[in-house]
């Protein structure tokens, strides 16, 4: 099977420091690739490079991102804008800051549809309500402002936004890190069901191997901008080769554990 998204030998520097160091990874249609690593390892920057939305201070030294056979860095600005949100949806870590505080959430979801001209203004409202139902939110939530919603509801709204144009690839950047444990599970279940229903390809960023265990097919373990281990979920979880990977896996709380085990 051909990968839908390929990152080839990507090197990115910020102020001379290699924040992404020779990263290569593949995402296959209908599958979930997880990027795992501790905070500051370069996961978010890797995700942003896929959409060519790295911070201004970051420089792509070499490497390429191939989406659907096209080199993303070489596309025109309007072609890139067509990919963003339409072919590739993205959900950020912080549901509390990812929504505009002075705009109704329904309008923010609708805006994505309008940005890609895939719907007439008249059909917008019902479509937005449908999207809210898809993420198991009451359609009435569309008329709320973000501050009226809980963290879990906001993250669902953000997922509705990312799914608005029925993208082929969804990038989730630690979508549950900021949420309570019980709500984390609900959101993950939602992601999993959407993935299966739409046969979506997901790039899932996390620092938590228990989530990898639940969702991922392939795993890339990242440390200080470098991918230190890569493989199928079974291989990586069963017989991790790298010390760092072992430490991260040791963090998974197991039933019956007397104490939390932390690395180092």
């Amino acid at each position: 099977m051909e990968p839908i998204l390929i990152i080839n030998n990507l090197i990115v520097t910020i102020a001379g420091r290699r924040v992404i160091d020779d990263v290569s990874l593949e995402l296959y249609p209908g599958r979930v690739t997880a990027i795992v690593g501790e905070s500051g390892s370069g996961k978010t920057l890797t995700a942003l490079s896929v959409l060519d939305l790295l911070p201004e201070t970051a420089k792509v030294v070499s490497g390429e991102v191939i989406f659907d056979g096209k080199d993303v860095f070489k596309l025109r600005e309007d072609e890139k804008r067509k990919i963003r949100g339409f072919d590739i949806g993205m959900v950020f870590q912080e549901p509390f800051t990812a929504l505009n505080p002075v705009m109704k959430v329904g309008d923010q979801v609708g805006e994505v549809l309008l940005a890609h001209n895939i719907i007439k203004k008249k059909e917008l409202k019902p479509k937005v309500r449908e999207l809210f139902e898809q993420v198991k939110l009451s359609p009435n939530v569309a008329d709320s402002y973000p501050h009226e919603l809980s963290g879990g509801m906001r993250q669902r709204a953000v997922i509705a936004m990312a799914m608005a144009c029925d993208p082929r690839v969804l990038i989730l950047d630690e979508p549950t890190t900021a949420l309570d444990v019980s709500i984390q599970e609900e959101v993950l279940a939602l992601v999993s069901s959407i993935q299966k229903k739409n046969n979506l390809s997901i790039l899932f960023i996390t620092h938590d191997f228990s989530i990898v265990n639940m969702l991922a097919n392939e795993v890339c373990v990242m440390k200080e901008g470098i991918i230190v281990e890569k493989g199928s979920r079974e291989d990586v979880l069963r017989s991790p080769q790298n010390e760092y990977t072992k430490k991260l896996i040791d963090c998974i709380p197991r039933i019956g554990d007397k104490r939390d085990r932390l690395p180092g």
């Binding site: 959409l51 939305l53 804008r81 067509k82 990919i83 963003r84 949100g85 339409f86 949806g89 993205m90 950020f92 912080e94 800051t97 990812a98 929504l99 505009n100 505080p101 002075v102 705009m103 923010q108 805006e111 994505v112 940005a115 890609h116 953000v158 936004m161 990312a162 608005a164």
Partner: peptide
């Protein structure tokens, strides 16, 4: 974040300026 988020979803610069940042 919400500005990044809008850009990531392909919202045009003018809309980001006038609908997201300006208000």
């Amino acid at each position: 974040d919400f500005v990044h988020s809008a850009k990531v979803q392909g919202v045009s610069d003018m809309r980001v300026i006038f609908r997201h940042i300006l208000p």
